[in-house]
Simulated assay, not measured.
Amino acid sequence: MARWFAGEGDAFRLLGTRCSRCGAVFFPREDDFCRNPQCGDGELSEVALSPRGRVWSFTDGRYRPPAPYVSDPELPWRPYTLIAVELEAERMVVLGQGAPGVTVADLEVGMEVEVVSGVLHEDAETTWTTWHWRPLGVRA
């Protein structure tokens, strides 16, 4: 199974793949072929993506998403913030949730954010991890 992220603390990074022939970078990872239609299909290698980027767009999720999103239907729904971030070096946009406590009122298009690890869901046996975007200077 392909990994989407790795590391902890300041070393936490999203993982993508880079084509050796055309240099295109992909997220989520691509392990079978180069997605660039003009490429002759170079070798793909794992790369850690930029830890920072700038807010490209944002909104709040005020509805309970359908499966496979995991949420307890017995608990009241809590809105969450969705942030589209243009990565610093790759210049690609990656969507993710805002870190806990980050609301749309805290965000502006163009502000700098960083990727941090987060919890998507947990139960008695398992904690499912994901990535979150956090404005620079904000600590959870």
Rank of each mutant, 00 (worst) to 15 (best):
A84C: 11
T81S: 11
E112P: 09
R18M: 12
L49M: 11
L15S: 04
D41L: 07
G118L: 10
F5C: 11
A99H: 09
P68D: 05
E46Q: 09
E88R: 07
G98T: 05
C39N: 08
T17M: 06
D31Y: 10
R13T: 09
Q38N: 14
T127I: 15
S57G: 11
L82H: 00
G96N: 02
E108D: 14
S45M: 06
F27A: 03
P66W: 04
P76L: 08
E88D: 14
A11M: 12
L75E: 15
T17W: 06
P37A: 08
L136S: 04
P28Q: 05
E125H: 12
S50Q: 02
C34F: 08
V109A: 12
S20Y: 01
R91M: 03
E125V: 03
W128I: 15
E43K: 12
A67C: 02
L44C: 03
E125C: 03
L95D: 01
P73R: 05
E88H: 07
P51Q: 08
E114V: 07
C34G: 08
E30N: 13
L14D: 03
E122N: 09
R91K: 14
S20G: 14
A124C: 08
D41I: 00
G96A: 10
P28D: 04
I83C: 06
G16N: 03
C34T: 04
V25K: 04
V116D: 05
G137K: 10
S45R: 11
R134T: 09
G137N: 11
C34S: 05
V55Y: 06
E122A: 12
V93A: 05
Y69W: 12
D32W: 12
Y80T: 03
P79G: 06
A2E: 14
A2H: 12
S50K: 01
G53S: 07
A11T: 12
P66Y: 10
A140G: 15
E86N: 02
E108Y: 00
T17F: 08
V119C: 13
V47T: 07
H121D: 13
S20L: 10
R139H: 13
L15E: 04
E122V: 00
T129C: 14
R3I: 09
G61H: 02
E122H: 13
R62W: 05
Q97P: 06
H132R: 15
A67Q: 12
E74V: 00
W131N: 11
R134F: 07
R29D: 04
T59F: 05
V25A: 04
L75A: 14
T103S: 15
V55L: 11
C39A: 09
V104S: 04
E8G: 01
R3C: 04
D60L: 11
V116I: 13
T130S: 13
E112S: 10
T81R: 09
R64L: 10
V102L: 07
W77A: 07
G7L: 08
R35G: 14
G16F: 07
T130N: 14
D106N: 11
P135F: 05
E88S: 08
E46G: 00
P79R: 08
D72W: 02
